[in-house]
Each structure stands twice: as C-alpha cells, then as structure tokens.
Write a protein that binds this DNA or RNA. Structure first.
Length: 184
DNA sequence: CCCTGATTCGC
DNA sequence: GCGAATCAGG
C-alpha cells in the first residue's frame, strides 16, 4: 500500500487542495499525517505553488530580494533553546477561511472592545515580558491595573487579538479562533 | 511565548 | 526529490 511519508498522487492532490483552500502548512501536515509542516512546505515549493492566492502583481514580497546570508548551518548549536514541548500537531486546527469582503464585515460597531476573551493571565508590569501583550486593563490609577499578558509576537506590543483592535485596519475581519475558556 | 511560510542544503 | 534545520516576520 501507500507508504507513509511518500508523496503519492492522492497526497499531492490533497496537499494542493488544502493549500488552495487556505489551510496552513501545519494543518495540512496534520491532515496528511506522517509528515511535518516543513515537509508540506517543501513539497509545496517544489510543486511550484507557495504563492497560494497571491497576486503576482501585488506580490511584492521583499523576501525574494532578501539577501539571504549564509547560515552555514552551524552544528555547534543544534536546537539551541528548542521548545521542549512541541504542542504542534493537528490539535491546532483552526478555520482560516479568508472571509471575503462581505457586507457584514462593514459593521463599524465592531469597535466594542468590551469583549473579554483572551483573559488568560493578567500580569503586572513586573511580570510583563517582552513577549507579553501589553494591553491596559482597568484603571492605571488602581493597584489592580493589569496587562493582558497574552503571548505577543516578537516585536509586537500586543497579542494577536489586541493587535487587531489596536490597529483596526480598514474593515475588521471577524476571525475567530478557539475560544479560550477561561479561568475565573 | 505562540504561530506562519521561505529558504537552504545534506541526504 | 525529500525534509529537517534554519531564517525571518507576525
């Protein structure tokens, strides 16, 4: 039968299907199984895809002109500071369907930040780390003032959720990820 | 700290 | 051709 880890026609077609469907490499990898997201990405590139739904005209990816330095892959520090627990897998399933410009998306009333979803762990300024979301919560005059503390992306002052609110692009896309049940 | 894809390069 | 390792950005 089909060997696991071998790119059969079925797998390649499924790969292209899921890829064009907007699924991320990790999701596809989890769907295919026996393959990592790197394998998926590698295959995608090999197939000549990669760009996915990107317009060639608008594809001004600086990466193409990025002067890639010589990593030389120093074996001296293999997996330096590697994540001990790779939660990566098929458990990170998320419907990343790119919502097209729908009339519903024009809801300006969406500015309501009253939503309280990412209330994972509020932290004080002392517990705040660079990779923590600094979203003011409550009155700064009160000792109960806390920050979101959610995981912020490197360089980003806020977490994924708050960064959207903070920047508020043209139209807010209702991209809803897994609801974090929260704590009390 | 999580994630994403892009690229390189040994196999 | 394959994919882990690595890079780079969010």
């Amino acid at each position: 039968m089909n060997e696991a880890g071998a790119w059969t026609e079925e797998r390649v077609e499924l790969l292209k299907k899921l890829w064009s469907d907007g699924l991320s490499a990790s999701q596809i990898a989890g769907e295919l199984g026996s393959v990592t997201r790197n394998a998926v990405i590698g295959k995608v590139h090999r197939l000549g895809l990669s760009g996915r739904a990107k317009n060639p005209a608008a594809a001004s990816t600086p990466r193409a002109s990025t002067p890639r330095k010589a990593p030389t892959r120093s074996p001296s520090h293999p997996m330096a500071g590697a994540h001990a627990g790779m939660t990566r897998g098929n458990n990170a399933l998320a419907p990343q369907y790119a919502a097209e410009a729908d009339a519903e998306a024009e809801q300006e009333t969406v500015l309501s930040e009253d939503v309280v979803v990412p209330f994972s762990e509020r932290v004080t300024i002392m517990d705040l780390r660079e990779y923590m979301c600094r979203w003011p919560m409550g009155d700064p005059t009160t000792p109960e003032f806390r920050f979101c503390g959610g995981r912020s992306q490197t360089g980003m002052p806020y977490c994924t959720y708050h960064s959207r609110i903070a920047y508020q692009p043209a139209a807010d896309r209702r991209r809803d990820r897994s609801k974090m049940a929260g704590r009390g």
